[in-house]
């Protein structure tokens, strides 16, 4: 269990690290708009907010093994390149209408599981609000 948890944590951290150059890429000049700019939350905070909401709504998945299996990550050392495969999984979710509503926002099942996995691996288990998590020391 500990080995798997470490692998997941490494996977998520490496995936986030891979993204850093992407996040810092050239900025576009936005056209003048009268729409509503939304300041984004820090990425980890945002991911955890959604991850916790998903796990609270789906306590049956509040388990690393279940989430890993659902995401196809039940291998000893997931490759950060695996994230490319999630694009196909998300498209498949839409084809099969496997869509999750979080406060009305329409998200794919796979993306919610990714947020949940990041939440379980990058926060202490006790922070995850579910009956199982609260029972842990």
């Amino acid at each position: 269990m500990t080995d798997s948890l470490d692998a997941d944590r490494r996977f998520v951290l490496r995936a986030l690290a891979c993204l850093l150059p992407t996040m810092a890429c050239a900025r576009t000049s936005l056209p003048p708009l009268e729409l509503w700019p939304i300041p984004t939350a820090p990425v980890p905070t945002a991911v955890f907010v959604l991850g916790r909401q998903y796990l609270a709504a789906h306590p049956e998945e509040n388990d690393l093994g279940t989430l890993r299996a659902a995401l196809g990550l039940d291998v000893p050392e997931p490759d950060p390149g695996t994230i490319d495969d999630f694009d196909g999984a998300i498209r498949h979710d839409l084809q099969t209408r496997d869509v999750v509503e979080l406060e009305g926002w329409q998200l794919s099942r796979t993306e919610c599981r990714l947020y949940a996995l990041a939440t379980l691996t990058l926060t202490t288990p006790a922070r995850v609000h579910s009956p199982d998590a609260r029972r842990r020391p």
Partner: peptide, 11 residues
């Protein structure tokens, strides 16, 4: 949830 969706989904 708006800010969280904006950041996480954009990421």
């Amino acid at each position: 949830t708006d800010h969280a969706v904006a950041a996480a989904a954009f990421w």
